[in-house]
Design a protein around this nucleic acid. Structure first.
Lengths: 220, 220
DNA sequence: CATAAATTAAGTATTTATACTTAGTTTTGT
DNA sequence: ACAAAACTAAGTATAAATACTTAATTTATG
């Protein structure tokens, strides 16, 4: 019997997965969570075999949840669900210690396969992203299984100060330096400097690249 | 027996709804579509009783689909699914002729209730938005039922030309005038003029307001 | 085919952003 | 308490955006 906890902020998606899984004998959804923090609480309480977790969630995103689960509840397996087949997300999930990564567009069969594989101690990464992963890790993998990362997760190539993060978030709201300055009660020139340093650190040269990079590194 | 067509770009969501609905006797999902255009084709072919359609979809959004279905297949009922309880979406759905509007966070019970009500010629709008609607239409409504709009859908307070829509979409990607000009092979000055006219028409004075307004009116 | 609407683009003045550098003033870590 | 890091903000020069206006071509539509 596989005991599962579902974490996704949409009831409908949870219901869907639940219906899909419980149609299968040997799988039970013992609890649900609608955000990252709740997921951690629920896991601490219930100790499921597998956590199925969406990346995009309020309070705390799925990847952070996976990282924490791996740290504090090493025996709980994690299967990440995502709408995106972005390399960034996949790699981050692996680094966070996820046991599997599935696209929301996956079929029922693939879903069940992934869950059972993960529950039995295996790894499952959807075929759509396997090629990407392959190029990053050299292993004797069979088709959809890969070994977990052994090396320490490589840290971001930049570190932002508190103030910079503040300014970044305002810049991402497309506010101009004047408005940012007013909002933070600093001079416009100071806002400019922070923005300038931000652009340097993130190695971008315009707003478009900034927003893309920020999204890429989840600096929202 | 109610015959339903599902249109949503996520297989998982479709599977979820399907499982949820077919659990109920008297409801059959006869076909599915993963984007707006496909939805229209599927409807032309199958003539279902009800179309359950997500707002956010590739190719053509759910509201446009509803409008077209209402025009070309008046006997097909439409139930709009959305993640957002935004007034804009609700009002637009009603104007497009939707018979119901449900949040994705709806419970199974509410879902079934909405579907059966819509299928039998009624209207169902989720309680979360009823208050909003009430303030717009004065009718002798019972709880969750409202009358359809009789007046012509009020048009947007601005109309954009083809070129302006093109430029708008590039502006929304945060591209600057130079890049937009290069991309469209026009002079930078021309791009500036179009952007200027855009700002005037939408009555905004900076990028932030522009993106907000564009989102508001679904001008993505 | 004629007129309106749309697209193109230049001119001009003013404001804002960019790309730095320098430097004084907190804050923070050990 | 002392250095390092962070925050603040000024100066300067150049580039780009803003806020218009005018006006020459294209393109649509009655």
């Amino acid at each position: 019997m596989i005991n599962v906890v579902l974490a996704d902020d949409h009831v409908l998606v949870r219901n869907g997965i639940k219906a899909l899984l419980e149609d299968q004998t040997g799988i039970t959804v013992i609890d649900e969570a609608s955000n990252g923090k709740e997921a951690l609480e629920v896991i601490a309480k219930n100790k499921p075999d597998v956590l199925i977790v969406d990346i995009r969630m309020p309070e705390m995103n799925g990847i952070e949840v996976v990282a924490k689960v791996n740290k504090n509840h090493a025996d709980v397996k994690t299967l990440v669900l995502s709408m995106h087949d972005s390399e960034e997300y996949v790699v981050k999930s692996i680094q966070a210690g996820a046991d599997g990564y599935l696209l929301k567009g996956a079929s029922k069969d693939e879903f069940i396969k992934a869950l059972t594989k993960v529950a039995s101690g295996g790894k499952y990464f959807t075929g759509d992203v396997t090629a990407i992963i392959m190029s990053n890790f050299v292993n004797g993998n069979t088709n959809n299984s890969i070994e977990p990362l052994t090396e320490a997760p490589k840290e971001l190539p930049f570190k932002l100060t508190k103030r910079e993060k503040q300014i970044l978030s305002l810049v991402l709201e497309l506010k101009n330096n004047k408005d940012i300055a007013d909002e933070l009660k600093i001079s416009k020139r100071t806002a400019e400097v922070h923005r300038f340093n931000l652009m340097k650190k993130l190695e971008v040269k315009n707003l478009m690249e900034l927003t893309n990079k920020a999204k890429e590194y989840n600096l929202t």
